[in-house]
C-alpha cells in the first residue's frame, strides 16, 4: 500500500448513462465488475443515502419468501405417491418431484442472492436447508450425482447440526455404488454430528437450568426465552432423529 496520503491514479471512467465504472486496463475488469454489481445492489436500497443498513435487524421478506417456496416444494413432494419411480430403469422423473426440484432451485437462488451485506450466517442457514431439501428431491428422482453434490453443498453451508444432509449424501453414494466413499463420508458425518448434538443438548440444558433458577427466585421468565427453549427442543429432537438415520446408514455400509 502507498503512504496514507497518496494513491495511484487509475485510468477509470464512468459511463454517463449506466453510471458503470469502466477502465481501459483489463487487469481491473474483475474488480470493477464486482464494484458495479455492488453499485446496482445499493441502488435498490430504500435507506436514506442508499448506504447499506447494518446487518441486523434483517428485513424478513426474503426469509418469508424462501420459507414459502420450501413449503410448496415439500407439498409437491407429498402430492402423489411416487409410484412410477419404483422402476429404476425408467429415467423419467415424476412430475411432482421435478416440480419440487424446480421450487427448491428457486429457493436456493433466492437464498444465495441475498444481499451480501446481510448476515452471512443467515444465508448459510437457509441455503443449507434448501440444498438439503433439493438433495432429497434429486434422490427421489434417482439423480444421485446431483443429490450428492447438493448434500455436499449443504454441508459446506452448515457444518454442524446437518445430519440430514450427511445421510442424504451418504445414501446417494451408496446408490451410486461408491461404498468406500460412502463409508468415509458417513463415518465423518456421524462423528461430527454426535459432537454437535452433544453441544446442542448442553446448550439446551444450560438454558433450562437458567430458566428454572430464575423461576425459583420468583422472577418472571420472558416468553421469548420459553419460545427459544421450545425451538431448541424441536431442533435437538430433529437432529437426534437425523443422527439415528445417519447411524443406521453408516452401520449398513460398514
Amino acid at each position: 500500500m502507498e503512504a496514507p496520503d497518496t494513491f495511484s491514479l487509475l485510468d477509470l471512467g464512468v459511463d454517463p448513462t449506466t453510471k458503470a465504472v469502466t477502465s481501459s486496463s483489463s487487469s481491473l475488469t474483475a474488480q470493477l465488475d464486482v464494484l458495479n454489481s455492488t453499485h446496482r445492489g445499493l441502488l435498490q436500497l430504500s435507506t436514506p443515502n442508499q448506504a447499506p443498513p447494518p446487518p441486523l435487524p434483517v428485513q424478513p421478506q426474503r426469509s418469508a419468501q424462501i420459507g414459502k417456496l420450501r413449503d410448496s416444494a415439500q407439498a409437491a413432494l407429498k402430492k402423489q405417491p411416487t409410484s412410477t419411480s419404483n422402476n429404476p430403469s425408467s429415467s423419467e422423473i415424476p412430475s411432482n418431484v421435478s416440480e419440487a426440484i424446480k421450487l427448491y432451485t428457486l429457493a436456493i437462488d433466492m437464498a444465495l442472492s441475498r444481499p451480501t451485506w446481510e448476515p452471512s450466517g443467515l444465508l448459510r442457514e437457509e441455503a443449507a436447508i434448501m440444498l438439503s431439501g433439493r438433495a432429497e428431491a434429486y434422490g427421489l428422482a434417482r439423480q444421485w450425482g446431483d443429490s450428492f453434490v447438493d448434500a455436499q453443498l449443504s454441508i459446506e453451508c452448515k457444518r454442524a447440526g446437518n445430519a440430514l444432509a450427511y445421510a442424504r449424501g451418504g445414501r446417494a453414494l451408496v446408490e451410486m455404488g461408491r461404498r468406500v466413499e460412502a463409508k468415509d463420508f458417513l463415518a465423518q458425518g456421524a462423528d461430527g454430528e454426535n459432537t454437535a448434538l452433544q453441544g446442542a443438548k448442553g446448550q439446551l440444558n444450560q438454558l433450562k437450568a437458567q430458566i428454572a433458577q430464575a423461576q425459583a427466585q420468583g422472577q418472571q421468565v420472558p416468553p421469548q426465552a420459553l419460545g427459544q427453549v421450545k425451538q431448541m427442543e424441536t431442533a435437538v429432537s430433529n437432529q437426534e432423529e437425523a443422527l439415528k438415520e445417519l447411524n443406521i446408514l453408516a452401520k449398513d455400509v460398514a
Binding site: N49, A51, P52, P54, P55
Partner: peptide, 25 residues
C-alpha cells in the same frame, strides 16, 4: 457520504459480512 445514517459505525459490519459471504461462496 451518508451522514444521516452514521454509516461509519456500520460500514465495517457490512463489509465483514460481505467478506465472509464471498469467501464462503
Amino acid at each position: 457520504l451518508a451522514p444521516q445514517q452514521n454509516w461509519g459505525q456500520t460500514i465495517f459490519q457490512s463489509a465483514g459480512e460481505i467478506a465472509h459471504t464471498e469467501a464462503f461462496k
